[in-house]
Design a protein around this nucleic acid. Sequence first.
DNA 1: ATTTAATCAGACATTTTTATCTGATTTTAT
DNA 2: ATAAAATCAGATAAAAATGTCTGATTAAAT
Lengths: 143, 143
Amino acid sequence: MTVIFSKKCEYGMQAVLYLAAREKGTLVSADEISKVLKIPREFVSKILQSLRESGLISSSKGKSGGFSLAKSASRIKLIDVVAAIDGLDMFDSCVLGFQECSPTHPCPVHNTWGSLRTQTYDMLTSETIDKLKEKTLHKISSL
Amino acid sequence: MTVIFSKKCEYGMQAVLYLAAREKGTLVSADEISKVLKIPREFVSKILQSLRESGLISSSKGKSGGFSLAKSASRIKLIDVVAAIDGLDMFDSCVLGFQECSPTHPCPVHNTWGSLRTQTYDMLTSETIDKLKEKTLHKISSL
DNA sequence: ATTTAATCAGACATTTTTATCTGATTTTAT
DNA sequence: ATAAAATCAGATAAAAATGTCTGATTAAAT
């Protein structure tokens, strides 16, 4: 199967966007996120825990507890989620899997892929979560 | 882990490029491919078998048998290998993992990713294996 | 003919990813 | 105080990807 990001990472990005789409300061439960985004409850729960450990989101325990962004949505980017979950290795590796792929020993698509990789990186860094979330609201409102 | 193509697919592309780099008509053993490309022997053997079933390469059994391209390198593209091994799903799926991601219900990076996906597709279709192999020769000669 | 070196087929094993379970702890609301 | 609803931690399970093994078959070389 061909994939860009792991399921964990996809779900993590969706969850962070969802948290941003909710009022600032509001606590959102793993259960709600699970239902809205259709992610297995215990699985998204684990992902949220790891994002908390990474410092991207924060949580409070107990009844009416839940999760919220750890900082302003204007200071979080998708790349932060990718870095926290999948890591940034893909932005430094050969698309054909050659181990020594470098400017002096490039693979046949080295330059093309280099450009695409950079553009992908830009996609994840150019806009912050608060801008991106606007474009996600229609998905969320259709609960 | 973040990945574009599966290991199978990466190895498959490398193997096809290697076959193209060898003289036309020459039979290359799985053992040689394994050693040169540093891919586990039995694993690459399976990949070669599946590429044969897909019709991209052909094989002959018995002593001094081996593999060769099933047709001219000028008629094979990397996308053919991807299609045979990983399939083309990635060129029709949401990078954030949203199930219903469409022009009418786009994810926040829908258009950007759409463009990148197209460019990636182009990278795999614009040149044939015989052109690409030239750029791989330096890797192979350093055995 | 026999040996040798290769593919082939299918089962098996390991590792990683994805997902679930169990129970403990925390906090709010009654 | 007690019940309810949430996170948390760690073990477990299931599925998919990656890798290995065994033996059969084939065909060239001796």
